[in-house]
Design a protein around this nucleic acid. Structure first.
Length: 274
DNA sequence: AGCTGGTCCTGATGGC
DNA sequence: TGCCATCAGGACCAGC
């Protein structure tokens, strides 16, 4: 659910809400597992250490403490929210961290596709099995058309499915993949290995631009995504094709089409994209 | 090696 | 109102 812009917004607001340097007084678990078992014993090691920083890698959040690191992935419906009142626990709250004895950071996730994990040190993150095969960050300088083209040279799958592959480039999910290809005028079902250089250049530009604009717009709230204070993002109002099937294209007025690629809903304009 | 489909889980929605 | 089918922003894994 949350793609890179949403996760980045969560990261930024958590840093504001929690203040780096605040002490973790306790961590409490309301169930044993999310998508994977929660490493309760390891995470307990973080108690009494201080929050040093919060990083993002792809769609993962990394909470660096002076004693170790908590890794978090939000899956489809995961949310971190801040509360000052622990009596306000809701359905599907699965664990919470207590900072300076009175600030509660609560993880809620109805579908439980999200998960948390623990590593000893931030520099070990790239050896973690979940991070081992992650592709480039979209804003990295070398995330350029040559990189994507070489990754796609043997890819006999649609460009839209290719762009969502976290081993290629991290952070692009189902919404932004459709939006990127609309901006780049590329039909989503084209095979990745058949994309031409000028098209790759447009795709790279669109990835960087759309993700940055979405970050600046506070992310997209389709249904579940909320900022840490419970408010919605606003970038959904800037979507040009996602969820717009049957509606006239903003550029040419032909009806936006919906197809399924890689098992996921895909939206595109048959006149503007080819 | 690369790709597809099934799978985890709950909740919202729409048709009958 | 109830029941059922379908669909959801992710990503692992088995099997081809």
């Amino acid at each position: 659910m949350p793609e890179l812009p949403e996760v980045e917004n969560v990261r930024k607001s958590l840093i504001k809400d929690l203040k780096l340097g605040s002490k973790l007084s306790d961590i409490c678990f309301l169930r044993k597992d999310l998508r994977f078992p929660i490493p309760q014993k390891s995470l307990k090691k973080l108690i009494n250490s201080k929050l040093a920083n919060i990083f993002r890698r792809g769609k993962y959040l990394l909470f660096e403490f002076t004693n170790g690191v908590m890794i978090s992935h939000l899956g489809m419906t995961g949310q971190w929210r801040i509360s000052r009142d622990i009596k306000s626990l809701k359905k599907h709250d699965h664990l919470y961290l207590v900072f300076d004895s009175d600030i509660f950071l609560i993880y809620n996730d109805p579908r439980r596709f999200g998960y948390v994990d623990y590593i000893d040190e931030i520099k070990l993150v790239n050896e973690h099995p979940l991070f081992l095969h992650l592709g480039l960050e979209p804003f990295a300088e070398h995330m350029n058309f040559k990189y994507l083209k070489s990754k796609a040279s043997k890819a006999k799958r649609p460009i839209k499915v290719f762009l969502m592959d976290q081993e290629v480039v991290v952070g692009v999910g189902n919404i932004y993949a459709s939006e990127v290809l609309f901006q780049a005028h590329v039909k989503p079902s084209r095979l990745a290995s058949h994309i031409k250089d000028p098209e790759w250049i447009l795709i790279v530009k669109a990835i960087k631009q759309i993700l940055q604009n979405a970050i600046d717009g506070g992310g997209s709230t389709i249904r579940d995504y909320r900022k840490t204070d419970g408010s919605k993002g606003s970038y959904q109002d800037s979507h040009l094709v996602y969820g717009k099937d049957g509606q006239p294209c903003t550029k040419c007025k032909s009806p936006i089409k919906k197809i399924i690629l890689g098992g996921r809903a895909t939206f595109w304009c048959p006149k503007c994209q080819y």
